[in-house]
Simulated assay, not measured.
Amino acid sequence: MHPNNRSLASGLLIVLAGLFPAQAQPTTLTVLSHNSFNLEKSLVAQFERESQIRLRFLKGGDAGEMLNKAILSKGAPIADVIYGFDNTLLSRALQADILQPYRSPRLAGLRPNLLIDQTFRATPVDFGYVALNYDRAQFQNRPLPQSLLELATPEFARLLVVQNPATSSPGLAFLLATVATLGEERYLDFWEELRKNGVRVVSGWSEAYYTHFTRAGGDRPLVVSYSTSPAAELYYSEARPKPNQPPTANLFLPGSAFFQVEYVGILKGTRNLRAAQRFVDWLISKPVQESIPTEMWVYPAHREARLPEVFRFAEIPPQPARLTPQQIAQNRERWIREWTQVVVQGQSAEAVKARR
């Protein structure tokens, strides 16, 4: 090619580049979550298309395990955003200093009672109730317990499966419910009696519900789960015709359910801060909030989000147990340690209490 022609061609390429700039590569945002995290695929696709942010979901086990991974990787975070730590773990996440503040402009649309963290490092996404569930078919010809203490009597021996509070958020919530209801002096005695009564302890919710609960072919007709689980059972039922009621039900023993709020937070050290902020805004937007109930079986944090019809089976417990964030922060690790000594290691409740 003649030198003049080469110059002409180069100039033409420059002009064309100005008219048709190269399309920017989408940002990849990594979201660390617990194993139960799920979002409607069409909403995710729409978000990625409109924001030019590609979402990568990293499942980190149960909520306790997930938070442990985030804390252990604090110096070199494995994700940009973390979702699914709850009010039982909130103080631990804040004390570990793994989150950075973000005050979303959409906070005004959320239920005010969920806005616990005034540092704006944890944004509420959903709430629900950890509760005892039972398999209806297994209790057609036997009575149900009427109190927490009755769970530890011989009549209900080897019927209950629970999660380890050291690794599981529903397991921790149930432990906290027993502390709130029975008090410091009695809760360990109750757990010692449960141990003697053959309670089964597993690491997380999925194992408890899908392996050991009788609805999944296990041998335990009582399980620590959620007050929305019966609604989910009916929603996913493949029976035809569709049954009029779920095959499971909530066992709302006084003080046995625990109020739970789940949060999203931006991890310190992210290189995708603006993308992370946009994801948080999107997660608490009304369209996403209205899809959350039948994706994750929790109540949306948005106060105007509509609930699906099946949520009439997602009962709200009349007497849920509650502890303040300060109470949980000050005592959580000790309560877990004492529970472990009594239930896992087999020490007596009296010996553990004597060492306080």
Rank of each mutant, 00 (worst) to 15 (best):
S7K: 10
G11P: 03
L13H: 09
L13C: 06
L16W: 09
L16C: 11
L19S: 12
P21E: 07
A24F: 12
T28C: 00
T30I: 14
T30C: 09
H34Y: 05
F37W: 02
F37E: 00
E40F: 11
A45N: 14
Q52L: 07
R56E: 15
F57M: 05
G60F: 02
G60Y: 01
G60C: 05
E65V: 10
M66P: 07
K69T: 11
K69C: 07
I71C: 11
L72A: 15
K74T: 14
G75C: 13
A79F: 06
V81G: 07
G84V: 02
F85H: 01
A93N: 00
R106W: 10
L107K: 09
G109A: 12
N113M: 11
D117S: 06
Q118V: 05
F120L: 07
T123R: 04
P124I: 04
L132W: 01
L132H: 01
D135A: 13
R136N: 09
F139S: 03
F139G: 03
N141F: 10
N141L: 11
N141Y: 07
Q146N: 10
L148I: 05
E150L: 09
E150H: 13
T153R: 00
P154F: 00
L159M: 14
V161M: 01
V162I: 13
N164L: 03
S168W: 05
G171S: 08
G171M: 13
L176E: 03
V179N: 00
L182K: 04
G183I: 10
G183Q: 10
R186Y: 04
Y187Q: 03
F190K: 01
E192Y: 08
E193F: 07
L194M: 14
L194R: 09
G198Y: 00
V202Q: 00
E207Q: 13
A208N: 05
Y210C: 06
F213G: 02
T214N: 06
P221V: 06
V223T: 11
S227T: 14
L234E: 06
L234I: 02
L234T: 03
Y236N: 15
S237R: 08
A239P: 10
R240Y: 14
R240C: 07
N244T: 10
N244W: 07
T248C: 02
N250G: 10
N250L: 00
L251I: 07
V264M: 10
I266S: 03
I266G: 01
I266W: 05
K268P: 12
K268V: 13
N272R: 15
N272S: 04
L273D: 03
L273W: 12
A276I: 01
R278D: 02
V280Y: 12
V280F: 12
L283V: 11
E290H: 04
S291K: 15
P293T: 11
T294N: 11
T294K: 12
T294L: 15
V298R: 12
A301K: 00
A301F: 04
R306Y: 08
V310N: 06
F311H: 12
R312I: 08
R312P: 10
A314S: 04
P317M: 04
Q319F: 10
A321S: 13
Q326K: 11
Q326E: 15
Q326Y: 08
Q326F: 04
Q330I: 08
E333H: 13
R334P: 09
E338H: 06
T340K: 09
V343G: 00
V344T: 14
G346P: 00
Q347E: 11
S348F: 04
A349W: 00
V352F: 02
K353N: 12
